[in-house]
Design a protein around this nucleic acid. Structure first.
Length: 780
DNA sequence: CTAGGGTTAG
């Protein structure tokens, strides 16, 4: 007892006053230990316990069965039970029949057996009637279950526990708790099962206080070693985000079964420590415990989040060795793992080889391709992944399966990545028709889709129409407004969110700070920054710092940006240095820019566009030595030259444009572009010089970006092929340069058109000569 | 007769 942490030491556990009332003098827990033991002994002598394990493995499939369709054997059993010779029928004969009804989820079947039982005079049989309570509960008829319970000849712990677990099964954990209190009031002693059930009720109610008391009793009566209790504690603490306690609970289990191992493995995964979960799994194999299909699914999910393809394929072999090779759920997981790790061929092989597929299979394929969009090496293959995802969705429709909320969320995310507003609208309509829009996650994905397709008004409308909102919904809306340069609205949403009592997280504050930064609200920005640290106890991360630094840069207060870095004792990352360098350049503070560049070059650069920023800077300053130094660094770091690509979708057809390429799909693009450049120059456009890599000629040279950059061509092509109010939407594989940014702003003014360009860093919505990014400082 | 673990999403 002395070795226990103070929280759990029995003598420090405070009893709920409610409980005290119920239990004067002390709660009947002092006999729990013995009672449990005798109960277990007793059970093992019953014959029908034998099919219990079979039964518990199947009960999760009820909902898939057609209700009220009894098998022929069952119908026969029911009718023979009704005939006069039922004197010969033992009460134990009813168990398998009831079990069959339960598997069929047939309330009417149970009712007819029930009336036979009454006729046969077995209503006094405590075991049979307790089983009946359980059967009714599993058929979602708690009213009848309760009636049977109320008429029981005697109420023992098993009966109470059945009723409690029934309420949990029917999603009424609070009623399970009140039954537990009733049970204690009645003087019954809980068993290990009872305590496990109560803990599960606490888990689903997130009632950590009650759970702690129960844990206190468990410690006091030394029951932590029992697996039914230990397993429940493990998942309880896992759900309370306390992995250390979950692992502790697991380790105290004397005889760890498959479920204990599975629980601890998935606890690690659920709490963001996949590596630990994999360790646990290895330990499991080392001690010789055999994983089942559920353990393996859990482990695959760990490998998936870790992108651990090696471990994953080893698990795959193990799955085949253990004979689970054709398990649909496992195959789905393996397939998703391969997709997420970029092994498309492997994934497709599995997909094609599957004898039957489920909705999850299709969803995993769609989600996998959606995921690959962000992992793709170049933007064109990312684009193709998105197209592939949409095609898989069409195949799925043809196969006759109806999409669900997972399908729709993935589809929205695909449409976002493709900036495919039209497809997004179609999916939106489908979610309304099917009713899935009422799901928070789907609705949040819709908000994000409209935002990323450049339609902030529809994003905001979708947000307002939501009936419930999660932290992520609020954060999405705040970020959306901030990204569209609507700072006041972003902050308004943030205040609304606080008012309804939703606690912001660090991502929310990134949105809030970037809203302040774009509007140049320095005082507000620092007020929110302090609020984040003091009121919400969130420690700032780089993204917060970069918002603040970006703010100073936008306001041309670069010195203050450097001051802030010094005061906060920051070691700026690649992104922050890039903002600073870009800011220094646009203000002509070249010496400061070169100084910052030296700092930047100290870092190990990850983003190939950072090199481009440096190259452009040195080229325009004519510092050729530095140019070749950076080029050498790129070669040493094996950074590929990025080739500038843009594409535009017009009437369901994709047109791509490559830097400096003459392939314009149509005559007149160059002419229109030249004309626009000529008209933009008087308005302040000065075609800047930058280093450009001409891939076709295999050489690099200093040249103006005018007419060469792909987004200019794509926009000109869009202008030629659409008219009126239609927005022009272009996607680009790298960040826009400031030259193009300036030019497109003027084009939106000259042509009175709205132009949306999604580059690798953000969305730019050009309208009336302005951009929604409010000329973000990080332009190359 | 009573329990307990899992796939795909924002």
């Amino acid at each position: 007892m002395a070795s226990l942490p103070p929280l759990l030491a029995a003598n420090t556990v405070k009893l709920d006053p409610e409980f005290r009332k119920l239990s004067a003098p002390p709660l009947p827990f002092d006999k729990v230990s013995n009672f449990t033991f005798t109960q277990l002994q007793f059970h093992q002598n019953r014959t029908y316990i034998l099919y219990n394990s079979h039964f518990s493995g199947l009960q999760k499939n009820y909902s898939t069965k057609e209700p009220n369709s009894l098998s022929s054997e069952l119908k026969e059993a029911v009718s023979t039970a009704g005939q006069g010779n039922n004197r010969k029928l033992e009460s134990s004969n009813y168990f398998p029949i009831l079990q069959e009804c339960m598997l069929q989820n047939s309330v009417s079947g149970v009712e007819s057996i029930h009336s036979q039982i009454i006729k046969s005079g077995f209503v006094e049989d405590l075991f049979l009637m307790t089983f009946l309570v359980n059967v009714y509960a599993k058929c979602w008829d708690m009213g009848s279950a309760r009636k049977v319970f109320d008429n029981l000849p005697k109420r023992n712990a098993v009966a109470w526990t059945s009723l409690m677990s029934g309420y949990i099964y029917n999603s009424r954990p609070e009623l399970a708790i009140s039954i537990f209190k009733e049970m204690l009031e009645a003087g019954a002693y809980p068993t290990n099962y009872t305590l496990g059930v109560v803990l599960n009720a606490c888990t689903s109610l997130c009632d950590i206080n009650l759970a702690r008391q129960i844990h206190g009793y468990i410690v006091k009566y030394d029951l932590e070693h029992d697996s039914s209790i230990g397993n429940a504690l493990c998942s309880l603490y896992s759900n309370c985000r306390n992995l250390a306690m979950a692992i502790r609970a697991f380790e105290r289990i004397a005889e760890k079964d498959v479920i204990s191992w599975t629980a601890v493995v998935s606890a690690c995964g659920d709490n963001g420590n996949s590596a630990k979960g994999l360790d646990m799994f290895v330990k499991m194999l080392v001690v010789g415990a055999e994983p089942n299909e559920i353990t393996l699914t859990s482990v695959l999910s760990l490998c998936c989040t870790m992108q651990a393809l090696d471990a994953g394929s080893q698990v795959h072999s193990l799955i085949i060795k253990l004979g689970y090779g054709s398990d649909l759920r496992l195959t789905n997981s393996i397939m998703y793992l391969y997709l997420k790790s970029g092994c498309i061929a492997e994934a497709k092989k599995l997909f094609v080889g599957m004898s039957s597929v489920s909705l999850v299979t299709w969803n995993a394929m769609i989600a996998g391709y959606a995921e690959m969009i962000s992992l793709a090496e170049d933007a064109l293959s990312a684009y193709l992944c998105g197209i592939e995802a949409l095609q898989i969705f069409q195949q799925m429709n043809r196969s006759g399966l109806r999409p669900d909320l997972y399908t729709f969320s993935s589809l929205f995310s695909v449409c976002s990545s493709l900036v495919a507003l039209e497809q997004g609208e179609q999916v939106h309509a489908q979610t309304i028709k099917t009713g899935f829009l009422s799901d928070v996650i789907v609705a949040t994905a819709l908000v994000n889709m409209y935002n990323k397709c450049g339609s902030i008004n529809r994003a905001s409308k979708a947000f307002l129409e939501m009936s419930t909102r999660t932290l992520i919904s609020w954060t999405s809306m705040i970020t959306a407004f901030a990204q569209h340069g609507r700072s006041e609205q972003a902050l308004q949403v943030f205040e609304d969110m606080r008012r309804v009592g939703v606690k912001p997280n660090k991502i929310t504050f990134v949105g809030v700070l970037s809203a302040c930064s774009q509007a140049g609200m320095v005082d507000q920005a620092f007020a929110y920054y302090d609020m984040m640290k003091n009121e919400y106890r969130i420690s700032p991360v780089m993204d917060h710092y970069s918002c603040l630094i970006d703010m100073f840069v936008r306001l041309d207060r670069i010195d203050e940006a450097f001051d802030f870095i010094e005061k906060a004792n920051l070691a700026p990352n690649e992104f922050i240095w890039s903002i600073l360098i870009a800011g220094c350049r646009s203000q002509g503070k070249l010496e400061l820019a070169f100084h910052a560049a030296e700092q930047l070059l100290e870092l190990e650069l990850k983003d190939s566009e950072t090199y481009l920023l440096l190259l452009n800077m040195y080229v325009s300053a004519g510092r050729w030595k530095d140019v070749s130094r950076v080029r050498k660094m790129m070669r040493d770091a094996k950074v590929d030259r990025i080739v500038d690509w843009s594409w535009i979708t017009i009437r369901d057809k994709v047109y791509s444009f490559k830097f400096s390429s003459k392939r314009h799909h149509q005559d007149g693009v160059t002419e229109l572009l030249d004309d626009l450049i000529d008209r933009a120059k008087p308005l302040g456009y000065k075609a800047e010089v930058g280093l450009e890599i001409d891939d076709e000629l295999g050489k690099e040279e200093a040249t103006t970006s005018a007419a060469h950059h792909s987004e200019k061509m794509a926009v000109a092509f869009g202008l030629l092929n659409t008219s009126g109010e239609v927005q022009i939407r272009v996607t680009k594989n790298m960040g826009m340069c400031r030259d193009c940014h300036c030019f497109i702003k003027l084009v939106s003014l000259l042509t009175s058109r709205t132009i949306i360009i999604r580059d690798s860093k953000r969305l730019h919505k050009f309208h009336n000569g302005e951009c929604s990014c409010k000329d973000f400082g990080g332009l190359v």
